[in-house]
Amino acid sequence: MGNNKIILYAAILAITVIAPFVFPAFGTQLATLWLMIIVALTWDMTGGQMGYNSLGNIFFYGTGMYVAAAVTIGMVYDVGEYTSAHGGGITSFTDQQYFTGMFVGILAAGVFCSVCAVVIGYLTFGLRGPYFAIGTLGVAIAAGELVSNWDWIGGGQGIALPVYPGDLDEGKVFFYFLFALTGVAVFLFCRWLYQTRFGAAINAIRDDEEKADAMGIHTLRYKLVTWSMAAFFVGIAGGISAFQLIHFEPLETAYQTINLGIFMVVCVLLGGKGTLWGPVIGASLFHVFKEVTWNYFLGWQWVALGALIVVTVVYFKDGVMGYLLHTKPEWFGVKIDQKASEETS
């Protein structure tokens, strides 16, 4: 790693650490930014690096929320009684119960979503291109409907988790750092993964799966492993969201296919598919754009968002990173041997 890179990483890390203290009013916004970065990075693991555009990753977010909530509650109360009492009083958790439950619950959310990804992947990875996208979208929508009819975990009313036991502002900072920590972990994980043979193999699946098959690469196994890695982190992000939001319900919050489910794809397209930094840049740009339009163009925010999506997809397909890769290849250490390329052509 060059000196410049170390400085860049250090600067980003420093900003990450001081941001919630410098901009205390934006604590929740900054936490959401990290959430966007997490879901964008994990979406790109299959979408950008492996060529499988899932529209169903939101399934892992919603499932992560519910698993984290159910596990946390289940460690202290009977989940069915708790949810049916809805607002009826039994919501007291000691600090220890709260934090232990949170730790176990979030971890369980990640593991459970990983397993889900293997099962769903086994059923859907036979589909290619748009069929995979629609198939996985179907899974997410169906899951949302099923959960909203499942009374044990609160049905359509959702679940209310205990509130952070402490100062409210302190809680905001706490959740910000949970997201930030997960985000940094996902980034470092991806950075490592894409340098391994495994990373090269999933790129091979994206570029020509038939050839990868013919070369003896364990395509299905690698696809399942990749998706379950992504699902693990999305599940964890969902689990953190559950505690941050305190109350959530299935269709608009947990399995929010038309919001976060689409946003994560747009973030990646905007930043640049199949690159390490693309999802991070895309998520940041998208989040700023979204918040600005929500604040200053209220009433037109969805129109502006739709316009952004259309423009990105039609005119800016390769995203920021793709654009830079074309115009400034030397930034990325791509050496083009002029003489040799002339001989070839």
């Binding site: 993964l193 340098q195 391994t196 043979r197 193999a201 070369m215 003896g216 196994r221 492993v225």
Partner: peptide, 12 residues
């Protein structure tokens, strides 16, 4: 890759 375990594949 056919001669690699998953752990081998996760190496550089």
């Amino acid at each position: 890759h056919r001669k690699m375990s998953l752990l081998d594949a996760l190496k550089k």
